[in-house]
Design a protein around this nucleic acid. Sequence first.
RNA 1: GCGAGGGUAGCCAAGCGGCCAACGGCGGCGGACUCAAGAUCCGCUCUCGUAGGAGUUCGUGGGUUCGAUUCCCUCCCCUCGCACCA
Length: 900
Amino acid sequence: MESYTTASAPSVYKQMSDAGYDHAAVERRWQEAWDEADVYRTPDDVDDPTYVLGMYPYPSGKLHMGHVRNYTITDAYARYRRLRGDEVLHPMGWDAFGLPAENAAKERDTNPRDWTFDCIETMRDQMESMGFGYDWNREIATCTPEYYQWNQWLFTRFHEEGLVERRDAEVNWCPECETVLADEQVEGEAELCWRCDTPVEQRELDQWFLRITEYADELLEDIDDLEGWPNSVRQMQRNWIGRQHGTELEFDIDGYGSIEAFTTRVDTIYGATFFALAPDHPISEKLAEESEEIHQFVHHEADPEGDEPNGVETDLTATNPVTGEEIPVYVADFVLSDVGTGALMAVPGHDERDHAFATKMGEEIVPVIAPEPDDWDGETVPDAPDVSEEAYTEDGVLVNSGEYSGLESETARERLTAEIDSAEEATQYQLRDWGISRQRYWGTPIPVVHCDDCGPVMVPEEDLPVELPEFINTTGNPLDAAEEWKQTTCPDCGVDATRETDTMDTFVDSSWYFLRYVSPDLEDAPFDLERANDWMPVDQYVGGIEHAVMHLLYSRFFTKVLADNEGLEHREPFTNLLAQGMVQLEGEKMSKSKGNVVSPQRIVEEYGADTARLFMMQAAQPERDFDWSEEGVRSTYAFLNRLKEMVDTATEGEADGDDDAIASYVANEIDATVAIASEKYDDLTFNRALREAQDLTRTLRQYADYTEPHAETYERGLSVVVRLLAPVAPHLAEELYAELGHDEFVVDADWPTAEVDRDRVRKRRQLVENTREDVRQIVDVAGIEDPERIDVVVAPDWKYDALELAIESNADNLIGELMQQSHIREQGDAAADYGQDLQAEREALSTTLDPDEEYDALESAAWLIEREFEAPVHVVRADAVDESVLTNAEPGRPAIEIDD
RNA sequence: GCGAGGGUAGCCAAGCGGCCAACGGCGGCGGACUCAAGAUCCGCUCUCGUAGGAGUUCGUGGGUUCGAUUCCCUCCCCUCGCACCA
């Protein structure tokens, strides 16, 4: 703060008024009032409310701008739907399990539970200070036994349905987090942990898996119907599932029997010149025991991440099941054990990677597919292409393929798959089962007991929940160290046994939380089935793109399982999805590490929550990234202040202006604004809706500056502006709505309505804007310093008739057709001239308002021109002026006469 | 490499067959108000033009059309996701 030593009293007052309205007081007042009236409560008995949901946050203790944007979008939409008269369900909760709480607890010598609840308290306060209208009665926190018992219950139900599997698996292990990660949680080529960016290692562990692959086909196929989802997300899920149709077939290898290989291009089998095995294929491992060279390759040289395909030749051969040919077998690092069968037939003529390897190893490259010739007769076998330099990877016509030569690739694949004894159609997925075991404390204990005799046994339903023991500050897994907790008896045979010490991936929590909001306190089921069937699916879901695959795919999976086994009548959880863009600073993502973070708290203190929300919503479409700008925030704040001043002034004394042409212009603008803004709110383009509201505010201010406004019109205008802003700037909207004399909350008000024809609105605005621009241009080009009088002359009726005829007419000779109308023909040369014009623009003609409507529109907008040029403006009809004036007048374009 | 989304005036950003030299904002320029500054308000902001005109523009090059920023194709560039996937 600067200190003033010589400031005079008036300048101090000035400073104070510049500081703006007392947003802190306004916001506090209405937050308390809402709270008292419980306005955001959604009673259990409402019928199919509009379900608006933002992805619940991890309670880190601090709301950041990304949260503010996310939850302002849902809040604005929820409020809008409410104003529209819908019942709305808009809940909030906490993704409260997770590793950061453990780390924080260790650092602060507390425990994850206390730390997490502290964070929740703080964040809830921050959300309330933002004015987000949640039904806090439905709040959930996933770290409470009341919530996570249902994770355990669902786990046992999944188990009963055969969707849970325990497997010894090679898993991604983050040494920093000391836990396993799902494939989805490993990022990029460098394979870094999604949380801490530590390079991930591989470990062999016994793991619990949810068999999401059982649902791969449905998860894939239903993406087509998710029309309310962004294409990007849909495509990412399709890629992730990665279904591929192909053929599985067997190659015999001496001494090892039949080896299964998967190919999508069985049509190229005549071109298979070698066979390749993954380094960790069982045969490779056996060979490595016998051969020093192969051992060296498998354990030291193989580099699956490298760009170069490496390999080593074995002394084995594989038998091509079609040709009977013996081809050499390699162990190669570009063959991956988790893709297909870990063994492949290599066709260097038609696969780039095989080509590169064959070139390196000096293997034969044989063309067996030729591009289909343009004039192909469907029979003749074309010439083989040259594939010595580059593989030909497209489909085509088979060559060098015995009896199959001359077939198209597609047909050949079908026939070969049918005719090769060992071959059958097969489908491969990239999607893997979901490993949910985590070696951490702060998560849902997996409800399993390990018994030496019975093996892993599910904890019976009546013994749920398995609650977490007290936190033990240790380096490994605290559950492993909780000896007393760990020791139990086998539910099946009663002997001493130990508890499973792994907890569940927190994505299990978030895969069904949206169902828990429906009945958050229900004690005998995860959710009230009947109500869930009525209330689900979520109508509008909003969150970050980073959850495009994981959370959104798991939630879809859970929903489908619940539909199949628990009577849920919905197979998809989220009808409409909005992936909101990032809030950036100078083109860069805000992040603590970059130190370019703008604190929402500071903005709220300085300008208020309404300003922060309004600025964000008007800055860009919700799905786009945008730059935070202090300048923009200030101008948003200034706008709210001006609006408040306008309302203050308007309510001081009753205006008593006439319901004149100007009032009708304003009334029209109000209607137009309502129509456009409503449409924009419907499709969540808040930026456009808010622009309309701000434009109307400006029109109203100009109106009041120019003349004594018509009280009813002006107040309706203000009341409309206030309601259009209410979803985004709810506190000030309440304040102003009350000032305007309403007793009810604006939250509960009715959305303004307007009966308008969008097409007419557009034409009116266009006409007025074009006319104003023409006047400006004339004044400017003609160098008129100080206009004395401006006449605006609407074109004569016959021109409108002629225009209409011209639009409808198909006649070659338009002028002839026009002249058949006596009232047009009577116009003589003028009619001929105008007819010429119409003829010239024949294809581009479009209808205009009719002459009376144009007159009205111009008459009511005349004040804008008078005000701008400080000269009287007369809008006149064609019959009131001399014909010479009318030459330039056309429908949609009045003649303009300026005297100086 | 594959897939998705983009490239619009100094910058940000709407538009997505004729109403488009192209909404809106920022920045810049001029004016009103003020002793002055700020705030606010009103214009201007591709080029030329003494009555609403003309010319050149919406990544590049083609095409469809009476007409394209808007539709189709080629290429270039950006962002995101997947990727030695058999």
